[in-house]
């Protein structure tokens, strides 16, 4: 089996599964937070909102969602970059472009990870 060094889990099968599990986590998360917002409407107060995210359940669920965003985004951006930022599509600079794009993606996603944990746990 070929190991892809820049892919998320090193194998296509593992990435395939992580992409689906993280996708389902995110769908559930957006539906839960979305329905909380829709149910409360414009009358939502700061006290209700912060109490909602202070609960252990929402902290853990939100952390799972942040981790899912990072993993899901990496696998998605990796798939896109390995399809289009290639020497076939971009000429001689393809590999350099792809690695630069992946490095920039890693910086952005790592920032999201730290930002999300900071919001939820501080």
């Amino acid at each position: 089996m070929v190991k892809a060094v820049t892919s998320f889990g090193g194998s296509g099968l593992s990435d395939w599964l992580v992409q689906r599990v993280s996708g389902v986590v995110l769908l559930a998360y957006f539906l839960v937070v979305g329905s909380f917002l829709v149910c409360n409407g414009a009358e939502l107060t700061y006290e209700q909102w912060s109490a909602y995210f202070d609960s252990t359940f929402m902290r853990v669920f939100s952390t799972a969602a942040v981790l899912s965003v990072v993993a899901h985004s990496w696998i998605g951006l990796w798939s896109v970059s390995t399809d289009y930022l290639t020497e076939r599509m971009m000429g001689g600079k393809g590999t350099v472009l792809r690695l630069a794009f992946q490095a920039a993606s890693a910086v952005v996603l790592f920032t999201y990870l730290v930002w999300g944990i900071q919001i939820l746990w501080s």
């Binding site: 965003v69 998605g76 798939s79 896109v80």
Partner: peptide, 11 residues
């Protein structure tokens, strides 16, 4: 794919 790349920024 386009919406996915857009959402990374949208996050």
């Amino acid at each position: 794919r386009v919406s996915g790349v857009f959402l990374v920024a949208g996050m």
